[in-house]
Design a protein around this nucleic acid. Structure first.
Lengths: 137, 137
DNA sequence: CGGTATCCCCAAGGATACTG
DNA sequence: CAGTATCCTTGGGGATACCG
């Protein structure tokens, strides 16, 4: 793990670690970015913060999501150890999803992203507007 | 901005703010996530931390990147106010890219993501391995 | 209720070639 | 040197239909 210590905060030549492809594919940044970059992850994980939810409850909360996308995202989150899936053998079936400790820590990460957005998004949007106003392209 | 205060840390019914589509498209989470989720942004922004770099220097540092992707990402970052582009009218041309204050603050955000990865990625990978080991699917 | 299975679209990003 | 232009591939995610 330590070999990646400076994977995104330094200017040193990254190629010294064995080639760009190896760097890019091996670097943990991809993993974590793919996780939080997933369209629904950022909504599902915080939604479970207050306690477990059933499949249908999640679907209603994320009103625009399709069954497939919800199932898919939940499976990935379960595989990555962020949530647990508990199935009760009743009829009709009842399935509950809950955050793990790791999932709870992910909420904290997302909170960091949220805080950055709240603090800086106005600047981003202003810069974008100013740039677009200079529509000399 | 305040209307989005709880865009990713609460369990309240998000639909109260006018429907899921409006929520999803209007929510700042998309903007910031698209920014940091871009494949090359997380490498370009920190690369400029030590000081300005020329186009070719960036390309060599991000060894696997294509000219198109580099140009594209730099244009987006410039539009969002994270970097500046300075062109010197010499022959051959010389173009330098540098972080703005906003860009510097983005480095801090990326550092937060990095810190999370360093602290928790081992758990994610372990969970994934354990899940895959139960290959009863 | 809580899924699978299938088809489809489209935008991000790579490969390649050309230029002021 | 620092790009633009063009073509092409890939896969995330939506729509729809069916199932234990």
């Amino acid at each position: 793990m330590k070999v990646y210590r400076y994977w995104m905060d330094t200017g040193v030549d990254l190629r010294v670690r064995g080639g760009a492809d190896a760097y890019l594919r091996g670097c943990p940044s991809r993993d974590v970015l793919d996780m939080i970059g997933s369209k629904w992850t950022v909504l599902i994980v915080p939604a479970l913060r207050e306690g477990p939810l059933r499949f249908g409850e999640l679907r209603r909360r994320l009103d625009g999501i399709t069954q497939k996308s919800l199932t898919q995202t939940l499976r990935t989150l379960e595989r990555d150890g962020l949530i647990t899936r508990t199935q009760y053998p009743t009829i009709p079936p009842r399935v509950e999803y809950a955050l793990t400790d790791l999932g709870l820590r992910a909420v904290a990460l997302l909170a960091g992203v949220r805080d950055w957005a709240e603090a800086n998004l106005a600047d981003v949007l202003a810069a974008r507007a100013a740039h677009d106003a200079r529509a000399d392209s």
